[in-house]
Design a protein around this nucleic acid. Structure first.
Length: 875
RNA sequence: GCGGGGUUAGCUCAGCGGUAGAGCGUCUCCUUUACACGGAGAGGGUCAGGGGUUCGAAUCCCUUACCCCGCACCA
């Protein structure tokens, strides 16, 4: 009837089989049960750029733990999976991929190139799904989405048109961050700053007043070619007389005005003279607008110099041009000096290319009207950010937010639903008009696409069929918990909150759990170039998904997680332990869960009441910790209970009865029932963390449900609490431990057996030990336990948890080392006693400290006094 | 410059007002029929430094030092 477990724990033999069975059972798909409360969670869609890394394994393990926990706890649970088209990132990898074959995207043309990306996407979507599957993700694949799906694209167009009509999307000319490599504009948050050792060049400009010169300090000499002014501070006495005059721009030999600007110029920095390049610097652009300066674009979209830079520079790369400008200045003697200078250079986070500030026509989202409600949602608690310390970061960013540049000059993405006609009219509409609504001329669609985060910002509802009023939207929106990395708090989380509130009137989730970054052992960020990345599949193949998941969960405290290859499967020993303990249990259990019968609580012995009480307390703990996202605490509680209480103590204590060395047949039956019960509940508690191994074992227990993943999650039951059993068993454990210690200290081996004398503080306790003497005899390896009589001379005395014990040793020489140990024990006890006595003698302590603390100290004092007295007999 | 986080056992980290903890590592003993991915033990910490509040501080406040991470600035 009952099946045994394989002798060895080999996850590869069952994990994939089990996943298929779950999928076939349809357990990942929510059931249509209006009675059940719902729980929904949407995956942070991984980019279809490549394979998942260990950070994905973390974020998805945490989501799966929540989903499985909630599902087992009776919630109608949806975990919606999918992937992100990841605009620039994907276009870049495909371009690189094609470059290896000697093809560039311009050879292919837009249509063909996009086709290639779709092929790439299909392949990687499959790989990603496979990886999540191997991790055990209980996501509903029947609802899988992709940001470029027709449904989601429609939501994107709808939102774009709506925002445009509401005046929150506008098109205009502005200075944006331009990536000359990707040849597209990017938003402010996509710019990363890198510290660099650069040079500061000091250049002399001739001034139209004879003999006078202005020395300008610059880090970008090549932009000089586009200078249209030189600025000084209006109050700077050194240059006051030159304001309004003109300087001669070196090389270009253009006459440019000397202007006064208190905002741009800090007289303390450099020489106090600033060159002004309105076309290639953000501050200079603003200055140019203030002073009505002409713009002169000397750097083109591809990072090469334009004709405006002069014939000898045209076509040169901007960095080549820099060298050449410096060279020419040297020759003309206008280069005064060069200083080294540390500065932060903005680069495109995706490709590490220096950003070129560039004036261009782009589409923007006017963000303040969206940010206001999003700030309020967090402030009011409608959206809770965990750990809470991230809230101030969120507020800080949201309160200083700038308009969002949403257009990208790329081919891969949602094409902006704007249609331009030959007469210059622009129509923004969801579907392409046949002709211009204003003049009837032919229209062509805008070639720019949207920032990829525009579509992911709609993810929690666009995936459910919005803007239609679908059953999924009604049932599962808003979602409950969002689990994601803090690195996309601004990119993604903030945008979802803004869009969600604007378009659905509701925050898209009520809680955001931001997990830390997975780093290597040295605390280094994982990256391909450093070669310290870990492919989760390698780990799964090596130690199994359960060990990986448990390691990730128990390491998740809310901060960064240092996990290198050596640590990543660290908890495989624990999984192995679970396997073996279960194997032992199955060898002795001859009943199945569905046999029913339950437990006859009236006939339980103290050991059994104890383990059930402990199990109940860990049940409460796990539920409590999961509800506050303390995955580490929940996992630790299970680890501690299963290994160090259930295996180390309970199973060892049950063995005498299970193996027939002690007790009646009825005792044995009851012990089996309890063992089954504890194992069953433990497996269910562990299941969200270790779905595979728990399922594999649980299948052998003969439960009513076809799968552990739809069996109920244990909840604490008051009847199982038993403080009295815990008190007595704590004493038993402590006494056994003491005997083991003393045995080792005195140099005896486990084979040597002794007689123990023990007396409790009252008859009931003494009687308990009389009945449970076999536990001490078995686990502490004794010959007998006497509850009366006096220990002979030379016995080792101690007081443990209120019980007086004496261990009778055979004649044996006591070494100096052993005597020293006894002396140290006494000293330690004495010291603690002294400190506690001093405390109790202090009336301020007795007066001010809460009663239970004072009471505790008094009890401790009594115990220590008794113990000290007994220990002194050992000398 | 502004903000956040950190500094606790050899390593990685919990604990955040009432007797210093875990995992891993180290050392000793043990092949006891679930498990040597095991069992039983041991050793190891003036909780970064200095002040303060309190009967009592690793825990709260101030301060110094160092280390991370954001954001802003950078001619």
């Amino acid at each position: 009837m009952k099946e045994e477990l394989a002798k060895r724990y080999e996850p590869s033999t069952f994990e994939q089989r089990i996943y298929s069975a779950w999928e076939a059972g349809g357990y990942f798909t929510p059931v249509d049960d209006p009675e059940k409360p719902k729980f929904s969670i949407v995956i942070p869609p991984p980019n279809v750029t490549g394979r998942l890394h260990i950070g994905h394994a973390l974020v998805n393990t945490l989501q799966d733990i929540l989903a499985r926990w909630k599902r087992m706890s009776g919630f109608n649970t949806l975990w919606l999976p999918g992937t992100d088209h990841a605009g620039i990132a994907t276009q870049m990898v495909v371009e690189r991929h094609l470059a290896n074959q000697g093809i560039n995207r311009f050879d292919l043309g837009r249509e063909k190139f996009v086709e290639k990306i779709w092929e790439w996407k299909d392949q990687h979507r499959t790989e990603i799904k496979d990886q999540l599957t191997r991790l055990g993700a209980s996501a509903d694949w029947t609802r899988e989405r992709f940001t470029l799906d027709e449904g989601l694209s429609r939501a994107v167009r709808y939102v774009f048109v709506k925002l445009y009509e509401d005046g929150l999307i506008y098109r205009g000319i502005a200075m944006v961050n331009w990536c000359p490599r990707c040849r597209t504009a990017i938003s402010d948050i996509e710019v990363e700053f890198r510290e660099r050792n650069a040079s500061l060049w000091y250049v002399d400009y001739d001034v139209e007043i004879d003999g006078r010169k202005l020395t300008v300090a610059t880090t970008r000499p090549e932009t000089m070619l586009g200078d249209t002014a030189v600025a000084v501070h209006p109050d700077d006495e050194r240059y006051k007389d030159l304001i309004g005059k003109h300087a001669i721009l070196p090389i270009a030999n253009r006459r440019i005005p000397i202007i006064a600007d208190p905002i741009l110029v800090d007289p303390e920095f450099g020489t106090g003279v600033v060159k002004v390049t309105p076309s290639h610097d953000k501050n200079d652009y603003e200055t140019g607008k203030r002073h009505d300066l002409p713009q002169l674009q000397v750097i083109a979209e591809d990072g090469r110099m334009t004709a405006a830079a002069g014939a000898e520079f045209e076509g040169l790369d901007r960095f080549e041009a820099r060298k050449k400008v410096v060279e020419l200045l040297k020759e003309s003697g206008q280069l005064v000096k060069v200083e080294s200078h540390a500065n932060n250079v903005g680069v495109h986070g995706k490709c590490d290319t220096d950003i070129e500030p560039m004036v261009s026509r782009q589409w923007f989202v006017k963000i303040e009207p969206l940010a206001g409600p999003a700030i309020e949602a967090v402030r009011s608690g409608a959206v809770q950010i965990i750990p809470q310390s991230w809230e101030s970061t969120y507020f800080n960013w949201m309160e200083n937010i700038h308009d969002w540049t949403i257009s990208r000059q790329l081919w891969w993405g949602h094409r902006i639903p704007a249609f331009h006609c030959t007469n210059g009219h622009t129509t923004v509409t969801m579907d392409e008009p046949s002709t211009c609504p204003e003049c009837g001329a032919k229209v062509t669609q805008e070639t720019d696409v949207l920032d990829t985060w525009f579509s992911s910002g709609l993810w929690p509802f666009s995936t459910m069929g919005w803007p239609d009023d679908t059953p999924d939207v009604r049932t599962f929106y808003p979602t409950d918990t969002l689990v994601t990395g803090f690195d996309i708090l601004f990119f993604w989380v903030a945008r979802m909150i803004m869009f969600g509130l604007r378009f659905t009137g509701k925050a898209p989730f009520s809680q955001v759990f931001l997990n830390g970054l997975v780093r290597d052992e040295q605390g280094q960020k994982m990256s391909k170039t450093k070669g310290n990345v870990i492919d989760p599949l390698d780990v799964v193949n090596e130690v199994g998904a359960d060990a990986l998941r448990f390691t990730l969960a128990i390491s998740t405290t809310g901060r960064d997680i240092p996990l290198g290859k050596s640590r990543i499967g660290g908890y495989s020993a624990f999984v192995n332990k679970i396997w073996n303990a279960s194997r032992f249990a199955l060898m002795h259990i001859d009943i199945e869960l569905k046999d029913g019968g339950g437990i006859d609580r009236d006939h339980l012995r103290t050991v059994e009441r104890w383990i059930l009480s402990r199990l109940n307390s860990v049940t409460a703990e796990v539920n409590r910790q999961l509800s506050v996202f303390r995955f580490d605490e929940a996992a630790s509680a299970l680890y501690q209970f299963f290994w160090h209480e259930f295996c180390d103590w309970y199973i060892e204590m049950a063995k005498p009865v299970l193996l027939g060395r002690h007790g009646s047949d009825d005792d044995r039956k009851l012990a089996r029932r309890v063992l089954l019960e504890v194992l069953d509940r433990s497996l269910r508690l562990l299941h969200p963390f270790m779905p595979f191994v728990t399922e594999e074992i649980w299948q052998k227990l003969g439960g009513v449900e076809p799968s552990i993943m739809i069996a109920p999650y244990p909840i604490p039951e008051e009847v199982l609490e038993d403080p009295e059993a815990e008190r007595l068993m704590n004493a038993v454990k402590a006494i056994i431990t003491t005997i083991r210690n003393v045995r080792a200290e005195r140099g005896f081996t486990p084979k040597d057996r002794f007689k123990l004398y023990i007396t409790g503080s009252d008859a009931r306790d003494t009687n308990f030990f009389h009945e449970h003497a076999y536990l001490l005899i078995e686990l502490a390896r004794l010959t007998e336990v006497a509850v009366e009589g006096t220990a002979p001379e030379g016995a080792h005395h101690d007081v443990i948890e209120g019980f007086h014990i004496a261990i009778e040793f055979p004649e044996k020489e006591v070494s100096a080392e052993q005597l020293e140990k006894v002396r140290r024990d006494i000293e330690k006890t004495q010291k603690e006693l002294e400190s506690i006595e001093a405390k109790l003698a202090d009336e301020r302590f007795v007066k001010n400290a809460p009663a239970h603390i004072v009471g505790g100290a008094q009890a401790r004092q009594t115990e220590l006094r008794a113990r000290l007295e007994k220990l002194q007999q050992n000398q």
